[in-house]
Amino acid sequence: MVEAKALAKRFGEFEAVRGIDVHVRRGEAFGFLGPNGAGKSSTMRMIASVSPRSDGELKVLGMDPDREGPRIRARLGVVPQQDNLDTELTVRQNLHVYGRYFGLSRARVRAKAEELMEFAQLTDRADDEVDSLSGGMKRRLTIARSLVNDPDLLLLDEPTTGLDPQARHLLWDRLFRLKTTGVTLIITTHYMDEAEQLCDRLVVMDGGRIAAEGSPSELIARYSTREVLELRFPPGEQEPAVERVTDLAERVEVLPDRLLLYTAAGEAALEQAHARGLRPASSLVRRSTLEDVFLRLTGRSLVE
C-alpha cells in the first residue's frame, strides 16, 4: 500500500524526515510512534499526497504522489491532526459536501452519510451544527468523513490527542471495527497505549529517523525486559539509592521522579531492595510497554 525508500523531507534548513524506509501491507494497521517533532506528521502528509518529498522514493497505492496526487487522494481517507470540519454546517451536510469532492453522486453521498453517522454514533446529532458537538464527537465525525469514499487506505494523524479517556476508548473501538473490515490503517501517535491497542506493526521515530521497527510485542521483547519495577523515593533520597539497586536489574533508568528497574522478575527485585533497607515511598511492578522501548531507544520519554 505504501512503499518508501530513503524518504526525506526538508523545510529550508530543517530536516523533518531524514531518510526512512517504510513498507505498509494491505489490511494491516501500521503505526508511527514518536514524540512531537519526530517527523511523523511530515511523513503522513507526504503519504497523503499533499506534500512533495524532498528526496527518496515514495509509492502510495502503487502510484507516485508527485505525478498522480489526485488519483491517489481519491482512494485515501485522511484524518488530520486538527479537525477541519465545516463548523457552520450540520453533521450530515459535512458528509454530503465532502463526499461530492470524490465525484460521488448525490444519491450515493446521501446513503453513505446515513451509514457513516450510524457507524460514528452521530445519527441523533445529524442535523446539529458541528459547532455544538463535543471534541470526541467532532473527532468521530472527522473519521466518518474520511470514510465517505470507501478508502483503500486510511491515514490517522494523532487520532485521539486531546480527548478524554472515555472518548478515546470509543474511538479505538470504532477504529478496531474498521480494521476488522479490512481497511488498511496508518496511525501516528505519541501515546504508547494507542500504538499497542491498534497497531499490528509500528516504527519508532525520533528526530526524523526510524529507531526500531516491529510488532508491539516484538519491540518490547527486543528492547525491554518482561517486567519493570518502579520505585519512587521521597525528595533527596532517590540519588543515593541509585547505586544500591543497579545490580538488582538488567538496566536502571533514572527519571526525575522515579527509578525504573528493568528485570524479568519485578517482585523479586522489590524484595531484595527491601532486604537492603531501601524504603521507597511507593513501588509498582508492571509489564514493559512501548514507553519503555522508547526510553531505551532514545533516552527520553514519549510525552514530555
Binding site: 469532492y101 465525484g103 457507524f119
Partner: peptide
C-alpha cells in the same frame, strides 16, 4: 448494519474518482 455496509464494495458508479477541473471547482 454499519460493518456490513462498510465492507460491501460500492457499485462501479459509486466509486470515488477524480473529477474534471471545472466540475471540481463547481463542487466547491
Amino acid at each position: 448494519m454499519s460493518e456490513r455496509a462498510l465492507t460491501a464494495r460500492p457499485r462501479a458508479r459509486d466509486h470515488a474518482r477524480v473529477v474534471g477541473s471545472w466540475r471540481a471547482a463547481w463542487l466547491r
